[in-house]
Design a protein around this nucleic acid. Structure first.
Length: 464
DNA sequence: AGCGGAATGA
DNA sequence: TCATTCCGCT
């Protein structure tokens, strides 16, 4: 073919000295086999990719509200997309048609009144990338709603860039090592421990609110034959299995502060909540990923939690579609766009925590700006409630028609199965402009029923 | 510019 | 499934 598409347009970038908050997607997000239903990079991946590259800021860039981006040069973006997909005749009209299909999926929506301006629905993006982290179907989650009991707003708001940022704050600020859990003054054991937010930067809300989404992730070098960092492939059965967690390379590419001790301990040591989320056994054998994740298997603690997004990068081969390569300018593989697993988990939380926070609106919504028509994309965040899928809806989410979703009302907090993960009672709302003061454990919405019960009992005895 | 249906391809 | 392509409509 005369198609000069480059699969390896992206050059492996250098490692960032410090991880920068940003939206990144793990390698597997770009792997055909890892993306259900798609054999090639998807348009929205591509868009994010471009957005991540500073060199394309003249063509497409984040602008406006969180997750909002503007295609400054539609023709160029289309051209790049065409190159990537080996579609020489691609144009903005066609590309935009493809983008429009994302409306129904609510991965993207159009910012009305602004030309060539679209907005990502990050919560959907996360779900798309971390289907296995859909907590809605988890028995555990169904029985433990840690986040919404006191939530008044939509229990499941979208994960905004802001939230993402919160999920992945700068590690240096949060990585302090130490135990994954901190005693909440409660009984020892699972219920008595709380996840240390600082141990899970991506769950922390300490990050500042970024007015814009993703900052660029610095590039970093990676080993070539490498499919999934640490051999982690969330799409493989058992990817989250306790005993099959990918290992964190003992000699990580990233500064140790990127991996607080807690992380190194791996999820396998997390209290029940987490373990409950992990599929028992199956799995493991292929956990190493297709390629066996050569470099990810070095010794070292196993990592069940998503590696740091910034740590994930796109390998050319991953990005490539086999068209052959060509314009080096085309995309650098980025270091990784990244909604990492962290996000996945974050989302899990997110569905909850974030969202809980979520009841909060994104700045844009708050601004109540421009459009408020029901159909408005701004409103999309509301429709996102469905993203958090209530019980049975989870899987069907994508298939669900817009109408269906739009008609839905927010379910009562209790009804949501979005609650996720463990007693992250201390998890603040990332997106909240006003981080809730640390609530006493007993007031924390994140506590499980059991936690509450115990605490209630404790209080009773205390008062008496 | 933007939308969405329809047919089609991979 | 995810586009791609075409196209009529607003």
């Amino acid at each position: 073919m005369d198609c000069n598409c480059v699969s390896d347009l992206l050059l492996t970038p250098p490692v960032p000295a410090l991880w920068t908050p940003g939206i990144a997607f793990p390698d597997w997000a770009y792997k055909p086999e890892s993306s259900p239903g798609s054999r090639q990079i998807q348009l929205w991946h591509f868009i994010l990719e471009l957005l991540q590259k500073e060199e394309y800021h003249g063509v497409i860039a984040w602008q406006g509200d969180y997750g909002e981006f503007v295609i400054k040069d539609p023709d160029e973006v289309a051209r790049l997309w065409g190159i990537r997909k080996c579609k020489p005749h691609m144009n903005y009209d066609k590309l935009s048609r493809a983008l429009r299909y994302y409306y129904n999926k609510r991965i993207l929506h159009k910012t009305k009144g602004k030309r060539f301006t679209y907005k990502f629905n990050f919560s959907k993006v996360v779900l798309v990338n971390y289907p296995l982290l859909d907590m809605a179907s988890s028995p555990f989650l169904l029985t433990q709603n840690h986040f919404n009991s006191s939530s008044t707003g939509p229990d499941c708001s979208p994960v905004t860039p802001e939230a993402l940022q919160s999920l992945f704050p700068r590690l240096p600020e949060t990585a302090r090592g130490g135990s994954l859990f901190e005693r909440a003054g409660g009984p020892a054991g699972p219920e008595g421990d709380k996840l240390r937010l600082d141990a899970f930067p991506f769950l922390s809300s300490g990050a500042p609110c970024y007015s814009k989404p993703p900052s660029l992730l610095g590039p970093y070098p990676r080993n070539p034959p490498f499919d999934y960092p640490w051999g982690f492939n969330p799409y493989l059965p058992g990817a989250f299995s306790l005993n099959n967690c990918p290992k964190l390379p003992s000699s990580s590419l990233y500064p140790s502060h990127f991996y607080p001790n807690p992380l190194q301990t791996g999820l396998s040591q997390l209290p029940h909540p987490f373990s409950s989320l992990l599929p028992p056994s199956e799995a493991g054998e292929r956990a190493g990923g297709p390629a066996g994740a050569p470099n990810g298997t070095a010794g070292g603690p196993r990592l069940c939690l998503p590696p740091y997004p910034g740590a994930l990068s796109l390998s050319r081969t991953d990005l490539g579609n086999g068209c052959g390569g060509e314009r080096g300018e085309a995309l650098a593989p980025g270091g990784a766009l990244g909604l990492g697993l962290g996000l996945g988990l974050g989302l899990g939380l997110g569905g909850v925590g974030l969202a809980g926070a979520a009841g909060r609106q994104s700045p844009s919504e708050r601004r109540g700006a421009v459009k408020q028509d029901p159909e408005s994309d701004s409103e999309l965040e509301i429709t996102d409630l469905s993203d958090c899928s209530s019980e049975n809806e989870a899987e069907a989410d994508f298939a669900v028609s817009k109408e269906t979703r739009l008609s839905g009302r927010p379910l009562p907090p209790e009804a949501k199965a979005t609650a996720a993960l463990p007693p992250l009672s201390s998890l603040p709302c990332p997106a909240s402009p006003h981080p809730p003061p640390s609530l006493p454990p007993s007031l924390s919405p994140a506590l499980s029923l059991l936690d509450r019960h115990r605490e209630t009992e404790a209080l009773k005895s205390t008062h008496s």
